[in-house]
Nucleic acid binder design. Sequence first.
DNA 1: ACCATTCTGGACTAGTTAGTCAATAACTGG
DNA 2: CCAGTTATTGACTAACTAGTCCAGAATGGT
Lengths: 201, 201
Amino acid sequence: MLVVARPRSFDETRVLRAARDRFWSSGYAGTSVDEVAAATGLGKGSLYGAFGDKRSLFLRVFEDHSADLVDSVRQALEGPDASASERLKAHVGAVARATGNDITRRGCLVAKGTAELSADDPAVAASAQRTFDAIENLLASCIEAAQRHRDIDPSADPRQLASLLLAVLRGMEALGRAGKSKAGLIDIANTAVGLLPWVAH
Amino acid sequence: MLVVARPRSFDETRVLRAARDRFWSSGYAGTSVDEVAAATGLGKGSLYGAFGDKRSLFLRVFEDHSADLVDSVRQALEGPDASASERLKAHVGAVARATGNDITRRGCLVAKGTAELSADDPAVAASAQRTFDAIENLLASCIEAAQRHRDIDPSADPRQLASLLLAVLRGMEALGRAGKSKAGLIDIANTAVGLLPWVAH
DNA sequence: ACCATTCTGGACTAGTTAGTCAATAACTGG
DNA sequence: CCAGTTATTGACTAACTAGTCCAGAATGGT
């Protein structure tokens, strides 16, 4: 009974990546569907057929990218207690360096999409909130690991420290986009890390 | 020789405020010149005649608003050394509360405009950088005042603490837009303030 | 080979976009 | 009250917008 229909002729991952790059560079309102079609190589009919309207396509790209971001933070922060403090310092520094190295200044797609759309698209706002919550949880887990290893004062609230660090990370992103120098961003990272309640050894 | 011509019939400040509100709510690309004309009550010809093209109008609005922001931070942070630490704590807390109270979640126009346009408009990026530099300097001055009054450890580098606090402030803005609760934002503010190198009294 | 089904590409539509322009209004020094 | 200059308005244009539609193509089970 089931008859197989014509299969898709495009690689969904590649198409979504091309669409993401357009939205990332030009923003949601600043990117036309025709541009996305040209960048992906698909006809508009295929684009609409596969992903729905412009907003749905953006949301798909936004959520996929958010998941990638959380995964990369997880990779950076998860690991044994003994090296948790090193991973934490390294991650904050790595974000500072990556932000400072971003020649294009296009910044983070999650931040950009949230800035543009969260006020009038609850789905975007909710997705961004989940993303930042997930990153905050990863930071908190890493801090707890460092506390178990007695690198960070165990009496400190790991959730409070995590939410502060998340704010610092997002702040570095915002300042980097405005043109703050790489050295200035690294300075912020070092100051933030330095003020944490480390246990003297 | 000089003959006086027809004077403007609109209040420039009111017009710029109406234009600012449109850009603030809908972003640069998401706002049409027709919408701005309708919101200001001016015809398009007047708008173009008075402010130039869309980008010039946006830049004007953006820079005026940035100057207002710097002024308000100056008002909050300037004052005698004896109360500098209180002003610093109060300002960070006030930003957290204001961000948490922003029902519309439209956030800060400087952040939003920078996110949307800094990558392809050097004038926007330069303006944002000047704005953030000015705020950082105000924070540094307030920290120095608190150090003179021996509220903050005088051996700390006030510029480093200022740039960290600026990052925290911009981070709170970004997280607030994503939906972080008012209580969570206040928590971040308290944690950041609490980690500063206060002198015990 | 045929069929039911889905995929493809681009022509098409109706509405919107940024920016221009010409006719007219408002002003004051002379 | 006239002359010279600038302000105002909204109709106008050419290009672009999101989204639709359809004729044809690709598939694998029968």
